[in-house]
Amino acid sequence: MTPTLSITDQPIDIAAALAAVQTDAAGAVNSFIGTVRNQSGGRPVRRLHYESYDSMALTQLGHVVNQAYEKWPMLQEVAVVHRKGTLELGDVAVVVAVATPHRAESFAACQFIIDTLKQVVTIWKREEYEDGTEWVAAHP
């Protein structure tokens, strides 16, 4: 039940993240895969640059997963892998995988983890456009 949490500058191995949550006690494995999209608010995006404060990101990720375990005590295994560095269109930026006995909790826990990750985990994203770059969400 120790979650697999990591921040990596290497391409994410989706199969490995799914394998990390495999357990005979689970009848459901649910995953979210976040990928790099070619536009943001209608503005074409060329690529993304992710920056991470690794030690705090992992600490906060641990809190998020602990909250998920409190909300869904039947939650079995969790894996969260986030990429950092420069990502091209289509690259995988994040994978969340959870294993639960039944499917309803697997959807709910997976969504909770990715939604809360986006609010508290110390990772920043700079979008690169044809004519410049911008830190996402930095300004009102």
Binding site: G34, Y50, S52, Y53, S55, M56, A57, H82, A93, V94, I114, L117, K118, Q119, V120, V121, T122, I123, W124, K125, W135, V136, A137, A138
Partner: peptide, 12 residues
Amino acid sequence: DEIALIPPVAGG
């Protein structure tokens, strides 16, 4: 203390 400034995060 390890102190850091944390601007709006944007992971995922």
